[in-house]
Design a protein around this nucleic acid. Structure first.
Lengths: 352, 352
DNA sequence: CTCAAAATGAGTTGCGTACCTCAAAACACA
DNA sequence: TGTGTTTTGAGGTACGCAACTCATTTTGAG
């Protein structure tokens, strides 16, 4: 029976600190000093130890390290205080992890605050200093917030931004999507779903002042301009993520333009947008693309009112934030590929 | 400065086995016996201990448990021996995890074998028995294979099927996508991308004997029949996942039918399919949907030859398989939501 | 060369669990 | 009642590392 199978192992043999000490010709105490950046070691010795670690690609045994350090780790999630379904989902997914968390002696705390007021958010962040090993924050890009983040980082706290980034800060990691690419994806979808037809395309956003919305619109327009010359993009409607306002604005627009063939809803207010479209009896003719999979968008997709939703998986974001904070705290490498949040295109048949 | 923030902790306090022993009014040794299903404990005592564990929602400290058990865990990945790009990607992603693996003292070994020959595959699986704590296998659904899997499970090895499932076996978990849903998604995409036009749709598959291909075709036809009555699906071309054969078959079909507006490539052989389409000068008129993001499909998407790829993230599959095996081996709960493989729709603008 | 400062070695303790041994207690049955 | 069996307790050791103390050696400045 020809088996013809090769086998190939993917891991190094398990060395311990003792082996490294012997390799480097020093004592365990010195290796420990080097490993934890403790003072009192000659630069030359540091080098020798680090070389020995490199040479053997030594990895400290996570379990042993975790057990030895004793105290549990504390992470804080700083989230918007309003009733935001997306944020509630993130919180729910963190709840589902509770067994996973406690088996690792991790404590995750939710801190709700007004993330849209820079000074309040900054103050919230300041109060966390020292108490936590890591902080995940849905941040506004503002100088005060940036400073607060940098202070946390300087105090040794690991910081990841969640959903909305503050690239100018020294945060360790960003867990969220590339919003320009998300907008481009939406544009490509609307354009393709419209098909041969030419006509106008409407955009409903919360506000162009929000970084993520602005970026999405930018990406959307980019694709429209370069690839779908037959489509004209109408000025952005600012619905402030509210259902009523979005509905009114869109209803008026639909009334004025009989040749609207595409619609991009950048933020929330989806209920209102869908209502305006249905009430006008145009939900079947207009290619409608929005964001996020919620109970509402799920229903709209199934009904055929909405054609596609651009989604960032909230469960993935919650877990990625925790994993990244943990890896940072432990000094482990981050699996970039794993922690990257993808832009999901969700249509009726691949609804999760 | 109104802070208005509440805080809410998500983890229980950390109890140890000693606490459980005191709670249950027994010794540490007895708790240990119960926890590991060792014999010699009265049913009544077992109940008391388990109640104490439940009552306090006790979670064994993963790190301590891992450290105490000493020996490392070994997992085997049984994969097709041919030069399959998808499988190579899985292998590559496992390689990227090597630091993560060795920090946890996990050894992952690749076993290449002819997974398309049931007896060879079954024999391969049999040889693994006893040597591994867990096995991930790209399996063929066949009685012999099923039996081999069940034997492994009976021997205490944790088994997950990868990419292709054997639902009739007693494998602990399946890491992969729902192929019927994938086919439905492809159908919806082709239908939507074709737009108003009516005409014919071609399908190129490896073989209808492969379970995943058959399921995809089934889902595809389902959607076509119910939702796109204007489109006629032509008989499936069986390209055996080979470029040349696929090209020839498709070229002939294109020659015979001038009104082909959609194309679904179910498996590999993508190179040939694309060539036939381009050579006929019809790549812009035909809505072309295929599977998997590889160097080739990436290029075709960017060129506009291919319109969308249905993808199952190989990196995610590799990591999910490892995590699931690890959780099973440790007796930890599996984060279903995390390990579920989603059906990704990849178009030019959300290429990962 | 002397002496203090810096660098290093040697050792201890404890983290929470797994796994083991041996003795003692509780029990079942005749 | 005694005997044999089952159940339970008590305790130890080990896992690899963090974090610490204290003694000893090396170094460099004067």
């Amino acid at each position: 029976m020809a088996q013809e199978s090769y086998s190939d192992t993917l891991t190094a043999t398990a060395l311990t600190l003792k082996d490294i000490a012997r390799e480097a010709g020093v004592s365990l105490a010195t290796v420990d000093r080097v490993l934890h950046n403790r003072p009192g070691v000659r630069p030359d010795t540091v080098r020798r130890v680090k070389e020995a670690i490199e040479r053997n690609s030594f990895q400290p045994h996570v379990a042993a390290a975790e057990l030895a350090r004793g105290r549990a780790r504390r992470f804080a999630f700083v989230m918007p205080s309003g009733p935001n379904p997306f944020m509630q989902q993130i919180e729910a997914y963190l709840g589902e992890m509770s067994a996973w968390l406690s088996a690792r002696r991790l404590a995750v705390e939710m801190v709700a605050t007004d993330v849209f007021d820079p000074s309040v958010l900054a103050a919230s962040l300041e109060t966390l200093s020292g108490d936590y090993d890591g902080v995940a924050v849905v941040a506004l890009d503002h100088p005060g917030v940036r400073a607060a983040i940098n202070d946390l980082v300087d105090a040794g706290t690991k910081v990841v931004t969640l959903v909305s980034d503050v690239p100018s800060s020294r945060r360790h990691h960003y867990v969220g999507i590339d919003n320009i690419a998300a907008g481009r994806t939406a544009g490509a979808l609307v354009g393709r779903l419209v098909g041969q037809r030419s006509g106008k395309v409407a955009i409903v956003a919360g506000s162009q002042g929000l970084r993520d919305h602005a970026e999405r619109i930018f990406g959307f327009n980019q694709v429209m301009a370069s690839e779908f010359p037959g489509l004209t993009v109408l000025p952005v409607l600012e619905g402030r993520d509210e259902d009523e306002r979005s509905e009114q604005l869109l209803a008026r627009l639909l009334g004025r333009h009989a040749d609207i063939v595409g619609l991009y809803n950048v933020g929330a207010g989806t209920q209102g947008v869908a209502k305006a479209l249905s009430d006008a009896g145009r939900d079947k003719q207009v290619a409608f693309v929005g964001h996020d999979v919620t109970a509402l968008t799920r229903r709209l997709l199934l009904q055929g009112v909405m054609d596609a939703a651009i989604s960032q998986n909230p469960g993935h974001e919650a877990r990625a934030a925790v994993r990244v904070l943990l890896a940072l705290a432990r000094g482990e490498p981050i699996l970039r590929e794993q922690e990257k949040i993808r832009i999901d295109i969700v249509m009726r048949d691949n609804l999760p």
